[in-house]
Amino acid sequence: MNATFANDIFRQSIQDYHLTDHVDTPIKNPYSPNGIAFLLYQKNWIDTVQWHLEDIIRSPTISPDELVAVKRRIDQSNQDRTDTVELIDSWFADLFTGITTKPEARMNSETPAWLLDRMSILQLKIYHFREQVNRPAVSDEHRQKASQKLDLLLEQESDLARCFDELHEDIQNGDRYVKVYRQMKMYNDPTLNPVLYSQKQ
Rank of each mutant, 00 (worst) to 15 (best):
Y197D: 12
M107Y: 07
L167I: 01
Q79P: 01
L40E: 11
W114F: 10
S109C: 06
Q172M: 07
S77Q: 13
R176F: 03
F10K: 03
D65A: 15
H22Q: 10
D189K: 07
E86W: 05
V133Q: 06
S59T: 02
Y41D: 11
T97N: 11
Y187A: 06
R176K: 14
R162S: 11
D94P: 00
W91K: 01
E157T: 03
S63H: 03
A3I: 03
I99A: 15
L150F: 04
D151N: 06
V85N: 09
E110Y: 03
Q156R: 11
D140L: 12
Y177R: 05
L53A: 04
V68L: 15
N173K: 13
H18P: 05
Q50M: 13
G35A: 03
A69T: 10
K102A: 09
V133T: 08
Q199G: 05
E166Q: 13
T84V: 04
T97K: 14
I88W: 04
R106P: 01
H168G: 00
V178F: 15
R182C: 03
S120N: 04
P136Q: 03
S158E: 13
N44R: 06
N193T: 09
W91F: 12
P30H: 07
C163S: 10
K185R: 11
E166R: 13
M184V: 02
Q183I: 14
W45I: 00
T111S: 09
S77K: 04
Q199C: 02
D75H: 04
T101N: 10
G174P: 11
K43R: 13
T191K: 15
S77E: 12
L40H: 09
L53E: 09
N78E: 13
M186W: 03
E104L: 02
